[in-house]
């Protein structure tokens, strides 16, 4: 039973850490650390959720989760479960395995959907986009709407619309391209992936959606930082202001919208830059990693 209690404690810790993260302002100042901590929080929450169910269900074995699960599978195959194994225990094991399977399925489906969308983008780009004459290693799509984005992957592509080219001055465009290059180089698509998976697995939990949005915003800020370092805060923030000034696509019902608020937050931190001290970031990060590694060790350690 101690395993289950441990998992419950780490689950509560992850929840508390998430609640603090959702409200705190410092992550805006150190977005990369913020993303890492969110990843630790999510990993911990999942591991301990699965862990609680399995630890309760497998408690008759008095073993760590993984060895107990192996023994349970062998016993189940042989048709001789231990006497202490009640229907309640079996139900808990089923819940744990089911949850893990559900998450794996969500992971697979998300990867497939994203790969499909990106493949279609690449195919269409190959047919209708042209290399940017300014040799900005970007592809240009002829359309008045304003869009600047990248298709991530091993052969990532940065895409600009002619609307964007018409909107921005040369220095602003350079900053925007640096922003996209940062997404590509640091594989921000992979940083976001676990949260997209979670949102697909648990679309009815508001906290999951909140987490995905926060990480998405932090990733943008991280890319902003790199762009500002290379091309100056002024160029980047004036590019952002131009984007905000153009009319926006009204968000369809049922979506979060609120991208305008995100742009405001990004502008705020560009105009009044502050940085969280390195010791503080180190402390936060090591705390997060400790919390995340606890359920992992609980899975593997025998009693």
């Amino acid at each position: 039973m101690t395993y289950a209690v441990h998992h419950l404690v780490t689950l509560a810790l992850a929840w508390a850490a998430g609640a603090v993260m959702a409200r705190s302002r410092w992550s805006v100042r150190a977005p990369r650390t913020g993303v890492l901590i969110w990843q630790a929080v999510a990993l911990t929450a999942i591991m301990s959720l699965v862990g609680v169910a399995l630890a309760v269900g497998l408690s008759p074995y008095r073993l760590g989760v993984v060895p107990a699960l192996a023994r349970f599978a062998a016993d189940g195959w042989a048709g001789s479960l231990p006497a202490g194994m009640s229907a309640g225990h079996l139900l808990a094991v089923g819940a744990g395995v089911g949850l893990a399977g559900w998450l794996l399925a969500a992971f697979g489906l998300t990867c497939r959907a994203l790969a499909g969308l990106r493949r279609r983008q690449r195919t269409l780009l190959r047919l209708v986009a042209r290399p940017d004459p300014g040799a900005h290693e970007a592809l240009v799509v002829e359309h008045p709407a304003v869009a600047a984005y990248c298709v991530p992957g091993r052969q990532a592509t940065i895409v600009l619309s002619t609307g964007t080219l018409g909107l921005l001055h040369a220095d602003e465009l350079a900053a925007v391209l640096a922003h996209e290059r940062a997404h590509v180089k640091e594989r921000h698509d992979l940083a976001l992936l676990p949260f997209t998976v979670l949102e697909r697995a648990f679309p009815w939990i508001p906290a999951v959606r909140l987490m995905r949005r926060q990480v998405a915003a932090l990733v943008e800020m991280r890319a902003d930082d790199r762009a500002a370092r290379a091309h100056g805060r002024t160029s980047l923030s004036s590019a952002l202001r131009r984007f905000r000034a153009s009319d926006r696509l009204p968000s369809p019902a049922g979506t979060l919208g609120g991208a305008e608020g995100d742009i405001d937050a990004r502008l705020d931190r560009l105009t009044t830059p502050t940085r969280t001290s390195l010791p503080l970031r180190t402390l936060l990060l090591s705390t997060a990693l400790t919390v995340a590694s606890t359920p992992l060790s609980l899975f593997l350690l025998p009693m």
Binding site: T110, A147, Y149, V176
Partner: peptide, 24 residues
């Protein structure tokens, strides 16, 4: 191409790394 780039929903937004989007 543009619709999926400008979309603010679910997988489409996750599939592409945006700087910002705007459209009349």
């Amino acid at each position: 191409l543009m619709l999926s780039a400008l979309s603010e929903t679910g997988d489409r937004i996750a599939a592409l790394g945006h700087f910002a989007r705007s459209v009349t």
